[in-house]
Design a protein around this nucleic acid. Sequence first.
DNA 1: CTCTCGATGCGCACACTGTACGCAGGGGGG
DNA 2: CCCCCCTGCGTACAGTGTGCGCATCGAGAG
Lengths: 243, 243
Amino acid sequence: MAARTTKANPIPSVWARRAREADQPALSRAAIVREAVVMLDADGVEALSMRKLGARLNAGATSLYRHVATKDELMELAVDEVFGEIAVPAADGADWRAAATEAAQSFRATALRHRWLSSVLGQAGLAYLGPNLMSFSERLAALFADAGFPEPERAIETVLSYVIGMSTTEAAWLTTVARSGESEADFIARLMPAAQQAVADHEHLAEAYAAEVVDPVALRDDKFAYGLEVVLDGLALRRPKAS
Amino acid sequence: MAARTTKANPIPSVWARRAREADQPALSRAAIVREAVVMLDADGVEALSMRKLGARLNAGATSLYRHVATKDELMELAVDEVFGEIAVPAADGADWRAAATEAAQSFRATALRHRWLSSVLGQAGLAYLGPNLMSFSERLAALFADAGFPEPERAIETVLSYVIGMSTTEAAWLTTVARSGESEADFIARLMPAAQQAVADHEHLAEAYAAEVVDPVALRDDKFAYGLEVVLDGLALRRPKAS
DNA sequence: CTCTCGATGCGCACACTGTACGCAGGGGGG
DNA sequence: CCCCCCTGCGTACAGTGTGCGCATCGAGAG
């Protein structure tokens, strides 16, 4: 029956001819990447499969491969996509510390908003050459060059390493918390007995674990800011004008 | 035919009864973890499967599950295993900078020797409570407490974040290089044209990419040492005795 | 000695993954 | 008008982690 059409339209030229294409902007690399980021944000890196992503876009899994060579390439694109969210202030020369702090905070916020980012970076690093990553680096370079650092890349790598390391640790922690389904404070409370026992015969650690955590979010904010100040102090010592 | 035995011994009580068990120490959690680390080192994190690991140990895939609850747990154990390789000097009070530097270098060396470490840390963080990770943390805490820092954890987290971030980036880069099959210098040489083109209209980046890389290994060593000095300088400013 | 029991290893099966391949259909250029 | 190329998809394959139940074996009880 109906030898011409395989299954979609029983009769050619009916009411809703290609109605789907009208409301869905078909399939495009941009739409795929956007939806992939949404899925990654929602359920983490192990929950993103080509089949599920295709289904979300009203498409078959293998259709995606017309726009994206491979899943790894998709991840590269997703990484570059979220790098576009990081705000690096333009170099205005005056207050490089404030600018660097703002950039670092923006990076951290992005990494915590997209908790899969760090783990993907760990597998592929910053070796990508995506446009957003490029302009991110360029703006950072401009900032530190403008501040008078003779080797801006060194400064960038130092502060970026700190920010990446701290954000990675935080993101991993928050992922663990999220998997438990509890609030961060509840999770900590439930974990405390086990942790204190594990730490019992390590005197310095026991001391560190003794304090009660009242506001975990503020505590993490503080830690990040503290370390950032340390790094920026160390860099300030190396800025020619200063000494 | 031989209704009793399914397939292994055609005749009971023959010459080589249980010969295999004699030379192979059976299967144990320790042996599994050890071999898993070997496989991870050799071919990276995506090449480790329970089937292949089982085969390497003359065992079936599912036999491993008698000793390890899940693959994730195996990875936790592997992480703790390699944390045992990191050498943190005992606190001797005098030269905390030298001790911290040694610990940081040892961490980096371990992370580069086991390049899968960073990517796993990105997925699970330092939330593990394994014994080696515990004593690693304890020794670090002792070191900084002995140096007179009032909040040793803050100092630890700062320097550790830097070290993790830098090591992660390096490990990811080295993994990319290794996949190409070329030496690091050759890979860089081959990449230069593409990189310089991608960087063409970013003036500060172009400047940074202009220099020729003659000894990539030494360059990476330098970068790491530079950033580490920056961080330690920043910490030194906060040590009570110093100011 | 026999009998039983707990620990260990393993084959099978299931649901799921990334992706190669070749076919169908529709829009744009000759 | 026809043709061709681009896009989407169904099928298929090799591989994954792991639950389940059975076979085996060493040790201890009678």
